[in-house]
Design a protein around this nucleic acid. Structure first.
Lengths: 244, 244
DNA sequence: TAAAAGATGCCGTTTTGCGGCATATTTCTT
DNA sequence: AAGAAATATGCCGCAAAACGGCATCTTTTA
């Protein structure tokens, strides 16, 4: 057979792996024909995949073929940075909500996700769970004034929250709009309202902000240290009280 | 320079990529020495990584070097099947809990995760969000009788739930323990209690089960069709009513 | 028992990878 | 302005790896 393949070996291995995921088992001969390759070389490729940890299974004899286990290959993800951050926040929410027995492996997922971050951010990612609180559901007067901030604002807030970086933003609570410069220490969700519990260095005190009232969030280069949870006990109760 | 490398090209590329993630920029010369390779070949490897979509950045001139953008490479995950399923459930919970503006990219993550599943399961994964409900928090009498089921039981339940497969299990509600064979149609979380809303084919009716009272869950090979949400309206209200 | 399929070894040929060199370009330092 | 340090790219010759084509073995099903 002539050598007609125009793919590099790496591309071919990627393709072969995804081809094997297509559930129905296939014979090595048909796969070889599909790639314009000799069966002998396809065996070599399969051996390579196995070396790299891909659990290629094979049935010998008539009616046999190669395939991947049905449950393998699920969960191969390449996420953008923004997506990874949102996923982390989601995991923290789910971990807070669901009993540990229900979602036992979430910790492992978080560790894997943390491992994929750059070294300096790993510890921050690991401790994320403790920095998100789930409160009671909001209702009544709070919901009336609730408005949807743009995704970009919240994206930057989450980014700074995960990276423990100081943020600047404009805030309009009950009074006129003010400029703030704070450390985003904790997030609290009183469904569906998010609150930011921050350390205001200018005022040397904890302040609570409703995220949908924040505007023009900017992430600075300055990082901060996490404060002990006790510092936020009062603020957490206050936010809870505002909800029902 | 002698050729001392004992790594295959694939291994080397993997290693190089992870090496580049170590934040501090490095010169091609030092990297080449580290891999026992000529600088020329390391340039070739970098070109290959770029072809494969890795955004390798480079600074020319004195003090320059190659590196990866700080925010890249977060979120390269290889999850086990069990972990992927739990992640899906977590995403569904987070999507239900957090307002869409807060976690805008969760849909994209779910689609990517779905794409990594075998073709026949994609549509099931996509529709998962609608099949999970968040109710009010449980309290009082319910919590007293709550016990933690083993992780294996819940794992199998989630697996069958995602794959829309019929399950068999032993259930002990108020009366004696009975054997059930049902379609796990929806899950409901009245924090921290999970309820399963299932179609009982034997009784031709919707039944609600408290997950911590299920025992010896077995996943069968038989799949089922999803029923219209209207069928579960009454059961959902019933589960809600049992909670407060 | 025969056919179909995976698995493995060997060998000659072809392709690719690699090192070495030259050269261009950019950028920082002196 | 000059030079050094770094990325980037082209070309060439050699060596290693990949490839095809066999042969042979094992397992399984019809």
């Amino acid at each position: 057979m002539p050598r007609a393949s125009s793919l590099s070996r790496l591309e071919r291995l990627d393709l072969l792996e995804s081809r094997l995921k297509a559930e129905a088992p296939m014979t090595v001969g048909s796969l070889a024909a599909e790639f314009g390759l000799s069966p002998r070389s396809l065996f070599r490729d399969l051996a390579l995949l196995r070396d790299r940890g891909v659990p290629v299974e094979a049935d010998r004899g008539r009616g046999g073929g190669v395939r991947l286990p049905r449950t393998w290959g699920a969960g191969r993800l390449a996420l953008s940075y923004r997506e990874a951050v949102e996923l982390l926040v989601s995991l923290a929410i789910a971990e807070r909500m669901a009993a540990p027995w229900a979602l036992a492996d979430l910790g492992a997922i978080r560790r894997k996700l943390a491992a994929s971050f750059a070294p300096t951010m790993r510890e921050r990612v690991e401790g994320l769970r403790a920095r998100i609180r789930i409160g009671r559901a909001a209702s009544g007067p709070v919901l009336v004034s609730l408005r949807a901030p743009d995704a970009e604002t919240v994206g930057r807030l989450f980014e700074a929250f995960v990276e423990t970086r100081v943020i600047r933003f404009a805030y309009r609570g009950t009074g006129p709009e003010t400029q703030r410069r704070v450390e985003p220490q904790m997030l609290m969700l009183n469904y569906p309202v998010w609150y930011l519990l921050a350390w205001d260095a200018d005022r040397d005190a904890v302040r609570t902000f409703r995220c949908d009232r924040m505007r023009a969030v900017a992430v600075t280069a300055e990082t901060f240290r996490l404060r002990p949870p006790a510092d936020f006990a009062a603020a957490l109760e206050g936010a809870e009280a505002a909800a029902p």
